[in-house]
Simulated assay, not measured.
Amino acid sequence: MDYVQFAEINGCEITFDIDIKKPKTAEFSIYGLTNHLNSKEYLQKAKEYDYSNIDFSRYSFTKKIDTRKEKLNSIQELEKILTELTHIVKKEKYEPIPITEIKPVSNTV
């Protein structure tokens, strides 16, 4: 089972996910639509954000942090990274997709 947590930073809802198959990589995602971008703009932005280790899609912005490579010395450093992510998201004029409820995943067969 994956570990997923929700929080709000700078007015943006963020999910925090650790995949059981990649436990050393933490993913922080902000869900929102960027339908106002045309295809060329979208591809340009995706390439631009790839350099910042941000996965950019039509539905989300995801910042991946590999804890083996990036040593965060304090919670303030993580907060700074996530606040910068919220500034990027807001600059792109995304339309938020609210996280309204948590639904448990059933393992029954």
Rank of each mutant, 00 (worst) to 15 (best):
M1C: 07
Y3H: 10
Q5R: 12
Q5E: 15
F6R: 08
A7L: 12
A7D: 07
A7Y: 03
E8T: 10
E8S: 05
I9K: 06
N10C: 08
G11E: 03
I14W: 10
I14E: 12
F16T: 07
D17R: 11
K21I: 07
P23R: 08
P23S: 11
K24L: 11
A26H: 10
I30P: 00
I30D: 00
I30G: 00
Y31N: 01
T34K: 13
N35L: 09
H36G: 05
N38P: 04
S39K: 12
E41I: 02
K45Q: 10
K45A: 05
A46R: 07
E48Y: 09
Y49L: 15
Y49V: 00
Y49A: 03
D50W: 06
Y51G: 02
S52T: 03
N53H: 12
N53W: 02
N53Q: 13
R58D: 01
R58N: 04
Y59N: 08
K63F: 07
K63R: 15
I65M: 08
T67A: 07
T67F: 15
T67H: 14
R68T: 08
K69F: 04
K71H: 14
L72E: 13
N73M: 11
S74M: 13
I75A: 13
I75W: 07
Q76H: 11
Q76P: 00
Q76T: 06
L78T: 11
E79I: 04
K80C: 04
K80A: 09
T83E: 06
T83H: 06
T86N: 02
H87T: 06
H87L: 09
V89K: 04
K90E: 04
K91N: 08
E92D: 14
Y94R: 02
P96V: 12
P96R: 05
I97Y: 12
P98S: 14
P98N: 14
P98E: 10
I99C: 07
E101Y: 02
K103Y: 04
P104R: 10
P104T: 08
V105E: 08
T108R: 09
V109Y: 03
